[in-house]
Design a protein around this nucleic acid. Structure first.
Length: 594
RNA sequence: GGCCCCAUCGUCUAGUCUGGUCCAGGACACCAGGUUUUCAUCCUGGUAACACGGGUUCGAAUCCCGUUGGGGUCACCA
């Protein structure tokens, strides 16, 4: 494919602004850009759009690059390794913005690049200010751009006026504009530079939407350079895409309305216009936009349902908690929110890639699922059904623009979860063990610590078929983490499996006591031996195995549900098992069932 | 509100460009059975959609127009 003459060199780019974590929508865009470049044997660039001095942070850059890497998305040109790494953002949930690196650091950053074979870097826009100014000057010289001195207040007033007249607000240059005077004034006064939007219809050709026409009366003289000297998104994106040779721009459909500006700018600067493909948006199941606020929303709902009035989070006082609970606009920082969710024993909805990672989703599953949101391989699998399970390399081999959909999609968490569960179960025990171990080292050290030695393998074997996420392992193995004397018995389970009389056979309680005697004498308290002993016992008593197994489950967990008995008992261990049996017997004596 | 985009089962979608093979296929979810010492897994079956109204045509999910609905966007954010 690389040498295919029908497809000359493709260069795509993912250009996040480092103002927070990588959102699933952004991840999908990055994935498609990556896949398209890979498919065409081209290059994939990551460029950091940090022209917003107030909101950009270095730690966000690290977090975004880390999440891309986790997903398996690698870039040919872009920020280097030192920008990656464990981000401060993750460690410090209440991170504060860090000022952008100044021009002085430019050469140092250059040395940091992983590769810039075409010499089109640096890949941080804040380090490219001279480039933007250079092209901006050409525009000014040809009177295609001009300084403007309006204050925010003045602009707000103009906007309000337009709204009152029910018109679209458009900034246009005053007919009596005096260019020389403005240029002179700009030498000493703070100002922005605006683009003189040509008065002509602009047709945007889009690979997914077709031709979209924008009439001139709806596009205004937008700002190219802000008062602080930084370019706006529009200028930076157009200049960089040209200078970096970007041939295909894949981005979210929220950018469609920006495209006529970019096309007009390209024309004014004598640049090429890349191929555009605007991807349909991704929403929540209820049709709302997926947003960070969803987490707070879920936490509030859980608090109300549990009727929690005071702060369950140490370090968060009741006053602040109450205020947050009441006032939907007040924010809780990420750390407190996480602790709150833990206290409530709920899972917050995952929004960012890092959320899915922490929740125990596998990167290949997220990649597969995200790819399906807006793209479809349109072919049958070996089973004759529509193919929808595939990996990144399949995507790279098959991704193409015509197969992109145009309908916005809702993010179906249930389906994602099903994909994740299937993928986990498709692993063999050893692969799952190493996978979970690596995850737990980072996200669930408590459970990992409880599974020392051979218990790790047993725990993973017990949990693998029962967990839908890596985080779920903890839940499946929950009975392990209950104190032996704190087990709560489910009355139905007790009645059915322990106390109910069975014609001609011992009660469950009697069987429990007898089998406990057998098990306590076991030389090896390991899964296979335990299972064999239980089977042998049932056979010797002439009862079905369930009659022995279920009472053990009740004693072990309080309910009639557990992973396979051998594994469960081996995990709990001989002593704790004995303690639980004893407590169970005592419990039944003390509170006879009705 | 102006502009722009979108419209097939509850959800993601195939089919739409190149009208007939579609009384619309798959997946997830849901429901009912079955396998299993429990749970989970697994297997089998089932419910369920072309937003509406006009055209064009022998024939429309597929083409055209309108309506309705949903969404995006209207910053010195990206």
């Amino acid at each position: 494919m690389p040498d295919d003459p029908a497809h000359p060199c493709v260069i795509t780019r993912f250009a996040p602004s480092p103002t927070g974590f990588l959102h699933v929508g952004g991840a999908r865009t990055a994935l498609f850009c990556w896949a398209y470049a890979r498919n065409r044997g081209g290059s994939f660039i990551v460029r950091i759009e940090d022209t917003d001095q107030a909101r950009s942070s270095k730690s966000a850059v690290g977090a975004i690059l880390e999440d891309l890497t986790w997903l398996g998305i690698d870039w040919d040109e872009g920020p280097g390794r030192s920008a990656l790494g464990r981000s401060a953002l993750r460690a410090d949930p209440s991170f504060k913005d860090v000022a952008n690196e100044a021009e002085a650091n430019r050469s140092a950053r250059r040395a940091d690049l992983p590769g810039d074979p075409r010499c089109v870097g640096p890949f941080f826009q804040a380090q490219r200010l001279d480039l933007y100014d250079q092209h901006l000057q050409r525009l000014i010289d040809h009177d295609l751009a001009y300084p403007a001195f309006d204050t925010p207040e003045q602009l707000a007033a103009l906007r309000d006026g337009a709204r009152a007249r029910k018109e679209t607000f458009r900034y246009t240059r005053d007919p009596g504009f005096d260019r020389d005077a403005a240029l002179e004034r700009a030498k000493t006064e703070a100002h922005v530079i605006r683009f003189r939007m040509p008065h002509e219809a602009i047709v945007v050709t889009d690979e997914v939407l077709g031709e979209v026409t924008f009439e001139p009366e709806h596009v205004d003289d937008f700002v190219l350079r802000k008062k602080d000297g930084f370019p706006t998104y529009h200028l930076a994106v157009v200049v960089d895409d040209e200078l970096m040779g970007v041939t295909h721009v894949l981005r979210g459909q929220e950018h469609l309305n920006n495209t006529p500006r970019h096309v007009a700018l390209q024309k004014a600067l004598g640049f090429r216009t890349p191929v555009y493909a605007h991807l349909p948006l991704i929403f929540n199941a209820d049709g709302s936009k997926m947003s960070k606020r969803d987490k707070a929303k879920a936490a509030r709902a859980a608090c109300k349902e549990a009727k929690i009035g005071s702060s369950p989070v140490p370090g968060l006082d009741d006053g602040a908690f109450a205020k947050w609970l009441k006032d939907k606009s007040s924010q809780l920082d990420t750390g407190d929110l996480t602790l709150l969710a833990r206290a409530l024993e709920i899972d917050l909805p995952e929004i960012d890639v890092s959320d899915f990672r922490a929740a125990g989703y596998l990167p290949e599953v997220l990649v597969n699922f995200l790819a399906l949101l807006g793209w479809n391989p349109k072919r049958k699998g070996e089973d004759g059904k529509d193919l929808e399970r595939f990996d990144a390399s399949f995507l790279a081999d098959n991704f193409d623009l015509p197969a992109l959909g145009k309908t916005p999609s809702k993010f179906d968490r249930a389906k994602l979860l099903a994909f994740n569960a299937d993928t986990i179960q498709a692993r063999d025990d050893a692969a799952f063990e190493s996978c979970w171990k690596a995850w737990a080292a980072e996200h669930d050290s408590e459970t990992l610590a409880a599974l020392s030695g051979e218990k790790l393998a047993w725990g993973c074997a017990a949990a693998r078929q029962r967990c839908k996420t890596l985080r779920n392992v903890r839940t499946v193995l929950g009975f392990l983490f209950v104190d032996d004397d704190a087990i709560e018995y489910d009355s139905k389970a007790v009645k059915k499996n322990l106390t109910k009389a069975v014609e001609g056979e011992p009660t469950g309680l009697e069987l429990l006591g007898e089998v406990a005697g057998v098990l306590s004498g076991l030389e090896s308290f390991k899964p296979e031996a335990i299972d064999a002993a239980i089977e042998g016992f049932a056979e010797s008593k002439g009862v079905k195995i369930g009659r022995v197994a279920q009472p053990i489950r009740v004693a072990l967990t309080g309910a009639a549900v557990s992973p396979p008995l051998g594994l469960s008992l081996a995990l709990v261990g001989r002593e704790r098992y004995a303690a639980r049996v004893e407590r169970c017997q005592g419990f039944n004596l003390a509170s006879p069932s009705d």
